[in-house]
């Protein structure tokens, strides 16, 4: 079973990498970019039946640092879980 975890910096956490990319986009002449935030996509292949609780624990213990990051679990065939 394929699961995707999207890890994003929380609002208010400075993202210097995103800022640099934003600047580079403007340098390339792309107008109208208001902001750029860079996150991380983690694809997991897990045993069928792996429940949301287990995936949430994986995110909280390792995949995301909840001090600075939020995460979204997608592809479970059930309503998306967002924290």
């Amino acid at each position: 079973m394929q699961v995707r975890v999207l890890v994003r910096l929380k609002p208010g956490v400075l993202d210097p990498q995103g800022r640099a990319v934003h600047h580079a986009l403007e340098g390339l002449g792309f107008a109208g970019v208001e902001d750029v935030r860079i996150g991380r996509l983690i694809e997991l292949d897990v045993a069928n039946g792996t429940d949301h609780t287990a995936l949430t624990a994986m995110c909280e213990k390792l995949l995301a640092n909840t001090v600075i990051e939020s995460f979204t679990i997608e592809g479970l065939g059930e309503p998306e879980g967002t924290r």
Partner: peptide, 17 residues
């Protein structure tokens, strides 16, 4: 130590990259 939660907070990429 921050990742192990022995200390609060986190260390981000340097502001100047």
């Amino acid at each position: 130590l921050t990742e192990a939660r022995l200390l609060p907070g986190a260390l981000l990429r340097n502001a100047g990259q």
